[in-house]
Every structure is written in C-alpha cells, then in structure tokens.
Amino acid sequence: MNRRLAEGIDVDAPRTDPTPVRAVVALGANLGDRAATLDAAIAELRRLPLVDDVRASAPVESVAVKPEGPDAAAPAYLNAVALVTTRLAPSLLLAFLQAIEARHGRERRERWGDRTLDLDLISYGSVTSDDAVLTLPHPRAAERDFVLVPWLSIDPDAELPGRGRVEVLLERLRSGS
C-alpha cells in the first residue's frame, strides 16, 4: 500500500489526537427528490459521531458528467459542498459517507452513472494519500466546477491540498488553461 501522509495522520488509524480537522465533502444527486436528499444527507452528516460542525453551501445545478463527457440528456445534478469539522479518521469518515449513500439507495452499477446520492471526500485537512481505497485530495476535484463553485461560495479562502487556491483552480477551469 503506497501512502503519503501529512499532519501525521494515517488514513486507516483511529484518531487519538482530539484536535478537529476540517474535511470537505461534495454532495450530488440527479435522481429522485434531489433537494430533499441533499438536505437529509447534510442532516445525517451533522449527526455523525465526532463531528463538531457542518457548514453546507447552497445547492447548484449542473449537467451530468459521464465517462464520455458532459451529458445534457441525462438528469441534471444538484450539487453542494459541506465543510465538516471532525475528529473521525479519514477512512472512518469515508465509511460513514458510504453508509449515508446506501441509506439513500445509492447503487454502484456503472462508473459515473445516475445516482440518488453521491458523497465524495474531497479533502481532509492537508492529508494526502494515494491509497487505492481513499485518495486524498480527491483526484478530479480541481476539474469539477460543481465542486469548486459551491466550495468557494462557503469558503472564499479555500485551498485544495497540493493544487492551490480553489478560486485560482476555478479560474483556470473556466478559461481552459
């Protein structure tokens, strides 16, 4: 297992340090009552053990992205970002995110398929990991305006570890450079 760590945090180890870390979680849904699903998922994030605070962006609508690229014929997504202050280890937070997805009927049949709920752990403090189960920061976050726009709306000083300021990443994405 090849893993790079910052902050001395092992992504699989239980956290013994009581200092909270800010994690960034992207939420998306394009099936069912998208707004109600995102609201319910944010409420569930707030109820997780060892989560001290959750701030969520307003939702934004975006075109579905498939392996072939944007697909305007697919149901549109509603996306948001939550800033989660937690003492959970990254791998445990990921497990909780996947459990929330499952409770909302998430099925993993096809890559980037339509879904009732998608929760992605975008970053966890300044931790970096290239573990097969949990890559941090999320490898495509800098390429997704549906992540960067809502993130920037609730944290104007946001930075994606190893990639830079979210504001600059969004400008690059929009300019195509």
Rank of each mutant, 00 (worst) to 15 (best):
40 A>Q: 06
57 S>D: 04
34 R>S: 04
53 D>H: 14
33 D>C: 12
45 L>N: 07
58 A>G: 11
52 D>E: 15
39 D>W: 07
57 S>L: 05
49 P>H: 11
37 T>Q: 02
39 D>P: 04
34 R>I: 01
38 L>A: 01
41 A>R: 00
61 E>G: 14
33 D>A: 15
38 L>P: 01
40 A>Y: 07
55 R>D: 11
33 D>N: 14
36 A>M: 07
54 V>P: 02
58 A>Y: 08
42 I>M: 07
45 L>T: 02
58 A>P: 03
58 A>V: 08
40 A>C: 10
55 R>S: 12
37 T>W: 00
57 S>A: 03
48 L>C: 08
49 P>M: 12
41 A>E: 01
62 S>R: 00
37 T>A: 05
44 E>V: 05
61 E>L: 11
56 A>Y: 00
36 A>C: 08
60 V>F: 13
52 D>Q: 15
61 E>R: 15
60 V>Q: 10
45 L>V: 08
56 A>M: 07
43 A>W: 12
41 A>S: 09
50 L>V: 05
58 A>S: 15
62 S>Q: 05
49 P>F: 13
39 D>S: 14
62 S>W: 03
64 A>V: 08
44 E>H: 13
48 L>D: 02
52 D>T: 09
47 R>D: 14
46 R>V: 03
43 A>G: 12
58 A>L: 14
36 A>L: 08
46 R>A: 09
35 A>T: 07
35 A>I: 06
55 R>M: 13
36 A>Y: 05
43 A>K: 11
39 D>Y: 12
54 V>R: 05
37 T>H: 07
62 S>A: 12
47 R>K: 14
55 R>G: 09
42 I>A: 07
54 V>T: 06
42 I>C: 10
58 A>R: 15
33 D>S: 13
56 A>L: 06
51 V>H: 02
62 S>P: 02
41 A>N: 03
58 A>W: 10
46 R>D: 06
48 L>N: 03
40 A>K: 04
39 D>C: 11
44 E>Y: 05
55 R>C: 12
59 P>F: 01
59 P>C: 08
37 T>E: 02
